[in-house]
Design a protein around this nucleic acid. Structure first.
Length: 332
DNA sequence: GTTGAGCGTT
């Protein structure tokens, strides 16, 4: 509270800049980003453990560790770069603006490369006029970018349009653009959305393998915060040696995939969380903000008896891999 | 031949 400014730097060796705090002692991410464009969070070196720690970030507000910013120098976090469109564009954004080191870019890119470019997905087109044909759809959407698929859903017997269809683009940029606006097609306003029927993997969620039992959800949250805002941590119970961590930014999640990270001295492996095999609606964006995200597995009143009885079976741990079982960390 | 929020026969 008594600190009007906190010291923030790009790097532990860089000269810190003073960033203003709010009346309640928090610091707005936007205040940080005003001086460090592209910043997605803060981290700092814990003087006791010498480990890097993330600063709690919820909905754009950074909270002082232990309610006291102290006189530490905080380090800016940036999302790891993904070569979505082209590397030069990413470089121009993240390197020149943020003076990020080229090696970091390369490392992050290398991680991302195997996943390739950002995948596009089918988009549902709602509100089509009855008369609209697939050719009409193709003609219309081709003005935004290369179209690789269009469909108009019809009644099989009558052939009448059901008034909706699907479209898919080559480029993710096109998809973003198309979702962002309404579309006047053959005289009707139509919406393009991500379909909710398809079991699509949540690319903001990562699978954390080789977890040890003493890793609490809160500790995982604290750790992963250094990469970006964490919206959920889920640890299956009983202990299964893995966890799920969900980030606000899918780029952060994807950049981490494939990496081996050291948490509490233990090497954990990050990979994509496989989609859950439920066909219910996906959770609405921005709904519950994961403020209480570490509900399950946190404060754990885990039964030692059960665990002893289980006798941690590595085969079982391996088999479960990234398959998500149980809930999503959100009790109904 | 009608309808107008939604969610995809193969």
């Amino acid at each position: 509270m008594p600190y009007l400014y906190i010291r923030v730097a790009e790097d532990e060796n860089e000269e810190p800049m003073e960033i203003p705090s709010e009346d309640d002692g928090t610091v707005l991410l936007s205040s940080v980003a005003a001086q460090f464009p592209g910043a997605c969070g803060l981290r700092y070196r814990n003087p006791e453990t010498q480990c890097l720690r993330g600063v709690r970030l919820l909905e754009g507000v950074l909270y002082a560790p232990e309610n006291d910013w102290g006189n530490l120098v905080y380090i800016v976090n940036y999302p790891k770069v993904s070569p979505t469109s082209d590397a030069s564009e990413a470089a121009s954004i993240y390197v020149s603006d943020n003076k990020r080191k080229m090696e970091e870019i390369d490392a992050a890119s290398a991680v991302k490369v195997k996943r390739g470019f950002q995948k596009t997905s089918d988009l549902i087109v709602l509100g089509l006029p009855w008369k609209t044909t697939e050719q009409d759809l193709k003609d219309y959407f081709s003005t935004f970018g290369e179209v690789i698929m269009v469909q108009v859903k019809r009644d099989l017997k009558t052939g009448n349009s059901k008034g909706f269809g699907f479209v898919r683009f080559t480029d993710y940029e096109t998809q973003i653009k198309v979702i962002a606006q309404r579309h006047l097609i053959d005289g009707r306003w139509c919406d393009c959305k991500l379909p909710n029927s398809k079991a699509c993997p949540d690319d903001r969620k990562v699978f954390v393998g080789r977890c040890t039992e003493d890793m609490t959800a809160e500790e995982l949250r604290q750790y992963f915060m250094q990469y970006g805002e964490v919206t959920d941590v889920f640890i299956p119970k009983p202990f299964r040696a893995f966890a799920f961590v969900t980030f606000a930014d899918h780029q952060v999640a994807q950049a981490l995939c494939g990496e081996d990270l050291i948490i509490k001295g233990v090497s954990v492996h990050i990979s994509n969380a496989e989609p859950k095999h439920n066909n219910s609606r996906q959770m609405t964006e921005g709904g519950q903000s994961g403020a209480g995200g570490f509900s399950q597995g946190y404060g754990s009143n885990r039964s030692g008896a059960n665990l002893a009885g289980m006798g941690l079976n590595p085969a079982m741990v391996g088999r479960c891999s990234a398959e998500e079982l149980g809930g999503d960390g959100h009790a109904g």
